[in-house]
Amino acid sequence: MSRKVLLIEDEPNIAEAIRFLLTREGWQVETHGDGTDAVQVIAGAQPDLVILDVMLPGKSGMDILRDIREMEELAGLPVLMLTARGQSRDREMAENAGVSRFMTKPFSNAEVLTAVRDLHAQATRL
């Protein structure tokens, strides 16, 4: 069974790095660089996991997260959130919005991989 991750990130270089890492782990990686239609893209792509940047053009990652948590079919979707702002307030906001895991840029590749593995394991165990 193919595992699919949807990466919503506006920085092409970061998106490329994550795609490289996860592809090697056997993930099918789809990327999207704009916040405006991100919720629809997520709903349409039916991914096993979403990696979501906070600062996106059009719509912030926080709003996207809140929106998908309100959608019945996406409420349990594992979401790994990445932010370059790194303030504790952002972490709180994200946790309140229902984030699965929150990470600050710059991250180590191993951290991202571990997080993705953990989240997927949790989701499949349920």
Binding site: A17, A84, K105, F107, S108, N109, A110
Partner: peptide
């Protein structure tokens, strides 16, 4: 500061990720 942080962390993220790769 938050914006400066963002602007600094973003290129650093790419640099770190690709150098680790």
């Amino acid at each position: 500061l938050s914006q400066v942080s963002h602007e600094l962390r973003t290129p650093m993220t790419s640099i770190r990720a690709f150098s680790e790769i």
